[in-house]
Nucleic acid binder design. Sequence first.
DNA 1: GCGTCTTTAGAAATCGATTACTTGCAGCTG
DNA 2: CAGCTGCAAGTAATCGATTTCTAAAGACGC
Lengths: 340, 340
Amino acid sequence: MAWRVGCRVVKIGDVAREAGVSVATVSRTLNGQSSVDPQLASRVREAAARLGYRPNGVARNLRRKATDLLALIIADVANPFFTAITRGVEDVARSRGFSVLLCNSDEDPGKESTYLRVAEQQRVAGVILSPHRDGSDIGDLRRAGVPTVIVDRPLTEPVDSVMVRSREGARAATDHLIDAGWRRPACITGPEDAWTAQERLEGYLSAVREHGEMDELWVRGPFRQQGGTSGAARLLDAPKPPDALLVANAQMALGVLEEVRRRGLRVGIDIGLITFDEAPWTSFVEPPMSVVAQPAYDIGAQAAQLLMDRIAGSAPAEPRHLQLSTMLVVRASSRRQAPR
Amino acid sequence: MAWRVGCRVVKIGDVAREAGVSVATVSRTLNGQSSVDPQLASRVREAAARLGYRPNGVARNLRRKATDLLALIIADVANPFFTAITRGVEDVARSRGFSVLLCNSDEDPGKESTYLRVAEQQRVAGVILSPHRDGSDIGDLRRAGVPTVIVDRPLTEPVDSVMVRSREGARAATDHLIDAGWRRPACITGPEDAWTAQERLEGYLSAVREHGEMDELWVRGPFRQQGGTSGAARLLDAPKPPDALLVANAQMALGVLEEVRRRGLRVGIDIGLITFDEAPWTSFVEPPMSVVAQPAYDIGAQAAQLLMDRIAGSAPAEPRHLQLSTMLVVRASSRRQAPR
DNA sequence: GCGTCTTTAGAAATCGATTACTTGCAGCTG
DNA sequence: CAGCTGCAAGTAATCGATTTCTAAAGACGC
């Protein structure tokens, strides 16, 4: 398939010949493992530099049976939540000398399993995965002994994980909407097979039920802008529409905003809004959007930390599960102003 | 470093023994190259399935001297412009059977060169790079014969590229500001070593100069939100501040918005705004933000296409350079309304 | 029925590094 | 001074697949 024409790549043998030593000495010099005569070493280094030698990482990986690469497989690269996770992973990994290969599964089980296979076959040192849903097949990775950490959504497999207390976040957000004076809060959540969607819905439901005498109003949609638009449309078209919305994801929230504006509803007056995820734009829309902020950077950093421990073999045998909390950030969109 | 304990991985020899054939037959069966007796083949496939055999990709890559992996090295994973490029690359690559490894250089030359080295050492089939600046050292890749395409920013090296006519876009945006009745347009652009920053500035300058009798008002800052905030602050603190701003990047635009609001300026009345990049939020801020939209998805798709040709060896020897155009999307932020 | 050609499967070389093992030399000790 | 120890450098095995080469068997024509 990929064919490369007559490019003479320099191999370790060429360096050895140039320096007048054996390949073992070259390898030892460049990896600095055991001691090499300083004079020989500098001759080797010079020869390597002169020829522009770059070791073949594939061969090295094969022999060493290890790499310094991590795979981070995320559900949606366009979602700021996941890019923030990425930052956290990168910072920790880099400080330990690992490089991060990011794979975008795009909420597509096919892509996800492709990347899982790639990660396994390339023998990466470890994998951090935001599983599509419980069906995500991490079994092969586990059988192959690849250290793995999952984030954002759980799996039944016993594996290290970093989650967020989504349910409590949704609960708090709904309580806040009710406290602010909204009478008919509704929830726009993600697809049925997404755990976070379920958790956020349940948080909403528990608040509504506890409060009593309130209708349970909710719809599902994809975790995309369009999911927000159509979800909001369905809710607002109902005979008795909601007067406030809890949205499960920032991308959906943009869609909700679109639909709400299209209908000429005034946010904070005619309808209250609060969404999951502190996207960069949330404080810039009019009125500023209240959010349930997730500690995305920390999720990534903690997951990378767990993975490092696992790779180093310094982790306990049984899986560890971290749970981080959300933070309610109240802005104008969820405060109820009297209509003028 | 990465150490893996007693996990018995199944190797091709195990499958061969289980099926009672040679390793060559197993390899031929699973790769479907030459013809194998159907009965033997099914025995092999059964054995492989029974043992849960997963070929070692590292060994395969070493022998084949080729992989089906592409590296996409982008400057900022949090920038929607680059994530849109990513989508374009992924779609094309995937349709040709390649997987994309995304690397986030974070505008950091150190990270960038780390990832370039990783890409070279892992012998990826090709690289798509948004170079940090002209200093980006792509020489090693070229020497190693790794097909490469650069996007967004040019290099002096002769290599395939996909660029955007930023200058014309900035020019058109500035003309539009002037036509809309703004008298003192200014430009907030990126750092000096970023080519796109330079191009956008020059587009702005050419419009202002052609119009005559206008001051050249501009500042630089990092391509981040904070760069927009401080840039806007400096411009607006001047004795004769601008009445309209062309911003070189959507992340900066959020910062500008922050600063403009902090000062109580009304967008579209006291100050006109237009920014590069059609970020998802641009039509949701109040008033909706005019933008110079870049065809980010197409940049990625075209770059991947060039790379595929290069990998297949079906590209001409001399580098090809594509230039895509921007599109001016006028919304309320740049239309001048009379103050009430 | 025999020689040639084609097809298929196995044996062994190969990819390019790392590293276990071997060798040779210098320095010490009994 | 023989023998032992320690150390650096070289030789060759190794990682796990693919692929070339080789051999055997079956097909076919005369």
